[in-house]
Design a protein around this nucleic acid. Structure first.
Lengths: 332, 332
DNA sequence: CTGAAAGCGCTTACAG
DNA sequence: CTGAAAGCGCTTACAG
């Protein structure tokens, strides 16, 4: 392996001069510079990041953690990381325990954490208290936390208002829980739900509010719920159902279609989280869209600012959401 | 930051003794051991990986590169990495140039590369010639390369045979190209296509063979092709179409449905690469399934073997594929 | 503008 | 079983 010393020897200068030439952070005479560059290039020299990082206060590597890997967010995160010269290390929270988040920072591997739609607020509080952290998608209420989100209350309000304006009268909301507790995100959405219904003189009866545990792949709760709806007397059945989790909404749509229930006439289904699949199923699924790729990009930029200790204009970025009205709810 | 020295001082021993105690690779007296562990735990010591890696011959970090991030493969890769104590660094090949793959190894950041459905064979040859590399999904023909794949010829043969057995007579194959050239994977599939058709006495007329450039998100070529099919005289139109790229098959199904073409009666559509979406669209889409998560896991294990210089039982793992016959092709 | 020294946190190799 | 020395590849801080 070619080291700084090898380049120095070949160029007939000290290691320091090579370091300075390559980093360009101190003046070097043109002649020396030329010799150093020639030597480096002749030896095909590549600086070793381990050596460099051992002294630096941070190391341009971040951890991205979440329950699963969200391609759209990852793409944005990665694009920004690439521009900023950062590396991205992956972590799947289903396969790690809480201590692992912190360990990867404390052992010098990474300099900060980006949580991607993470719901475990305790874990985030634990990490955020001591290390650079940014939450992208879902966010906690931590004092001084850096977050990249949309306004969940407003988003829910938009979606539920639209359903009410269509004349729907029994509008149900199926929110997600983590370990039995609703995450902050769902509480915000519930506020929007209640506001929208109140504005239209509708009742948010307890029988219209459901909670299912957030499990990434398991569709059982959504199917059980769908079957429960199907067994109800049509006059009492909700005429609109909104899910926190997109996969659950998709499963519900499919279940209803199998039984011949007419969407969007007899019942509307929608999701609080738009995914690419929603454009492709029949009927297409109405959902709240978020600019995930841009959010990922900004979250990464924000994290870099924090890591490098540069001041942040704003620690809480709120992106505009977009109501993607599609076939599963029908026209206004 | 707490270092080895701090622990040594507190335990009243040398740094070496602390290192040996924590690594457990040399005998240490029980009494010393207890004192060291107590000190480490009291100081909440975490060994710094940069210091460690600077001396080690490899660093338990790998690069995962591909055109986009495939959740199923990543999940498998990450699970194995986690078991083996490896870190996974991401790279999006659309956002990097070829030199970046090699640079991240040569600068000591990572010790090997795992290519995920990568099609750029030249790039892989360049990397594989000098560094530990494993190809997962698609693979090149490189001498001595480590690959984790399915038998593409057999997979194509299975799918096309099924269509022929259904009585389809004008079976089209839309293969992908990279920079105008078909990747090895498509050539193998083409072999399977030709064999299946020959076995059923069908002609693989040039008018039935199409190529579209592989672009991850762009559906334009698929839609253009679909429209071209729609304009044909039904008697001359293909009665079955198989796509290399799943998104193109999905787009084609949707286009056909919009126009009222009956699937699978008038025309069958299928894909060489099964994705979760295929179970959810209407009609559900027939495709060749691969055990991506397991493939990712084995690819990661293989890469670790290579990095650590341990002998490999077999450098070419071929997993069984599975023909997922669904609604878009109908019953036999 | 350039260099010699010391150090980042750890481990390898040598000595006892 | 334990330790002092040297070194991994780089950079910071001090001197000239």
């Amino acid at each position: 392996m070619v080291s700084l010393k090898d380049v120095a020897k070949r160029a007939g200068v000290s290691a320091m001069t090579v370091s300075r030439t390559l980093n360009g952070n101190y003046p070097v005479s043109a002649a020396t510079r030329a010799r150093v560059l020639a030597a480096a290039s002749a030896l095909d020299y590549e600086p070793n990041v381990m050596g460099r990082n051992l002294r630096a206060p941070f190391n341009r590597t971040v951890l991205v953690a979440g329950l699963g890997f969200v391609e759209s967010i990852l793409t944005g995160v990665y694009a920004a990381a690439n521009e900023l010269g950062y590396e991205v290390i992956l972590m799947h929270t289903r396969l790690c325990n809480r201590g692992d988040y912190v360990r990867r920072i404390r052992n010098g591997m990474t300099s900060g954490i980006l949580f991607m739609n993470m719901m475990d607020e305790e874990a985030m509080a634990e990490v955020g208290a001591r290390h650079p952290m940014v939450q992208c998608g879902s966010a906690s209420d931590l004092e001084g936390a850096c977050t990249v989100t949309v306004d969940e209350e407003a988003a829910a309000h938009d979606l539920f208002s639209r359903l009410a304006m269509q004349g729907r009268r029994r509008i149900a909301y199926v929110s997600a829980t983590i370990g039995g507790q609703p995450p902050l995100m769902s509480l915000r959405r519930e506020d929007g739900y209640l506001r929208a219904l109140a504005e239209h003189g509708l009742e948010a009866a307890p029988a219209l509010r459901f909670r299912t545990e957030f499990l990434r792949e398991d569709l059982t709760p959504a199917l059980a719920l769908s079957n429960r709806f199907l067994r109800l007397d049509p006059a009492q059945r909700p005429d609109a159902i909104v899910f926190d989790q997109n996969v659950q909404a998709v499963a519900c749509v499919n279940r209803f279609r199998e039984t011949g229930l007419a969407l969007p006439q007899e019942i509307a289904v929608a999701s609080m989280d738009d995914q690419p699949i929603n454009d492709v199923i029949q009927p297409t699924l109405t959902a709240v869209g978020r600019p995930y790729e841009e959010m990922g990009r900004e979250a990464m930029r924000m994290l870099a600012q924090r890591i490098e200790g540069r001041p942040l204009a704003c620690g809480r970025l709120v992106f505009p959401h977009e109501l993607m009205a599609r076939g599963s709810t029908g026209p206004l």
